[in-house]
Amino acid sequence: MQRGYWIRSKPIYGSLVWQSPAAAHLVIAAGEGGIAVLKLFQQMYPREPIQVLYAGQPKTGRDYAEILGSTVPEGLQICNSEAELLETLKTQLGNYHMGTQFYVAGPEAFLWQVMKSLGQVGVQDADVHKELAGTLARPVYCVHCKTITEAVHHNIFSCSHCGRKLFVRDHFSRRLGAYMGLMVDAEQPGNIPKIEEVYP
């Protein structure tokens, strides 16, 4: 991990809070992001229409579909997977208008997949409220073979495509939705620093 200096491209995530003014609210969450949604609904509800799209992650984290079902008064839609959620989102985005506030919560890779769909209809990154929830695992882009490895937990890992040992940087590409991974032993092959789990 890199300490002691600030990297501009590294996204900073906040906590979801209802925004006003607004014409409508669309909350999109996956896995542990369900907690962020539950926290939202502990705040005073806005008056405008609210819709919540949620996909549980039964294999990894907890699935909050049931608790959400009893907490969210209306407009809750449960999807079976992130992929299904993203499909649903695409087909429904046409119903939303300017003035809609967007809230996204979940693991980092999910946040940026949602951003990609929102970006396609002209919603800008800075205007979407995001909360990182659950795992800190990073999607990492191998700058050598140009593929993305999902859910990287360690400071150094083997690229899922080319097998190079990559060091995970804090540099983040919003377009790719991934951190940059650079070959760690390019100068001295085989000289690999200690591998640690830093993104649990």
């Binding site: 014409a23 985005l93 046409g94 939303y96 208008h97 300017m98 003035g99 809609t100 929102l118 209809v121 002209g122 919603v123």
Partner: peptide, 9 residues
């Protein structure tokens, strides 16, 4: 004028 405008306006 500003109501019901598509996202990305």
């Amino acid at each position: 004028l500003l109501s019901q405008q598509p996202l990305g306006t």
